[in-house]
Design a protein around this nucleic acid. Structure first.
Lengths: 187, 187
DNA sequence: GTCTATATCTAGATAGAC
DNA sequence: GTCTATCTAGATATAGAC
């Protein structure tokens, strides 16, 4: 064969990484396969050696993004006492609002997940429950943990929906301050 | 002329109402003009007597929906002392989660607004500021008002992203309870 | 104002050469 | 594994009949 034994999986990985960023930036449905493939220097026809359909790519992409977002929100350094506070500062930041391509999947593709297949929503549910459980361990407040996740996701949706940088920063800062007041996190 | 003097504006109104529901249900970009027009019993060609382009329809649709959502969240019965609590119960309900077509535009088209034109985001900003101001009047808590809006929008995004009805209800109930604890609303 | 027909473009997906 | 070429279907938008 003319390609190395790892070539295919490497190409698939590059494709997924690129598609994640593009989909979070401009929406998944809105971007065509030719565009996705040319973003990694290939043509549209080569897509189908890696995925049987665009829908299959969506499912894999969302699955991986949800796990990544779960890690982003929940973190894994269980030793650091105020790492939740750090995660929140990063999440509710202007940088995150301005760079959806490298951020959490929920504020940008949440509605597409909601309209997708049961399998995708099943994966979303699993990741969200993990995040909830992780925060509940620290907050000892199940309701508060769900409220916190909702507030974070909603704040990003709102921040990106307004035009002025001033209002965007105000929304994010208000949520950071409010969380500091209503949760015992040392934010 | 063969049509009444009010016929055109009535058709336009019917078209807008139908498109709002369809777009909130399945996404705006995902639905074609033929489908939108046939939903009110007309064919695609007639669309362009009412709007110069699909984008123009989107802008008008979002503008009206944002004002409607602002009313839905903020309300206008300034006399009722706990009408904020009522609005929140309706917003954070299973019915709302199950019926995006008749619900708030932000949890379903928020990302499309975020990716749209500055004019659309300008309108979104205006409506959001109105809602914020309305709630701030009652809560006397500017940060809390933004946090509340974010939490409501985020809760709907999450609730619709999970598969099981059980988890969906848990997320919504947790947010209702948490708001009851952290805001003085009598929820 | 709405229809049918159509122009033009782009989409997802497949076939066969290399 | 990737390419080019192509099929089919759907999209937005326009033209002209009624």
């Amino acid at each position: 064969m003319r390609y190395s034994s790892t070539h295919k999986q490497e190409t698939r990985a590059r494709l997924l990484a690129s598609c994640k960023a593009i989909a979070k930036q401009g929406g998944f449905e809105a971007t065509g396969i030719d565009t996705l493939m040319s973003s990694i220097g290939l043509t549209g026809g080569a897509f189908y050696t890696h995925f049987p359909s665009k829908q299959a790519l969506f499912e894999e992409l969302i699955r991986e993004e949800l796990e990544s977002s779960s890690r982003m929100l929940a973190g894994d350094e269980r030793s650091d006492p105020d790492h939740v506070a750090k995660r929140l500062r990063g999440y509710l930041s202007s940088f995150h609002a301005a760079n959806p391509e490298s951020g959490c999947v929920l504020p940008t593709l949440g509605p597409e997940i909601a309209r997708s297949s049961p399998a995708v929503r099943k994966a979303a549910e699993k990741s969200l429950k993990q995040t909830h459980e992780s925060w509940n361990e620290r907050l000892d407040d199940s309701d508060g943990a769900w409220a916190l996740i909702a507030q974070c996701v909603g704040a990003l949706v709102l921040a990106r929906s307004v035009e002025s940088e001033k209002t965007r920063k105000e929304i994010l800062a208000a949520c950071r301050r409010h969380i500091g007041r209503t949760h015992t996190l040392g934010l």
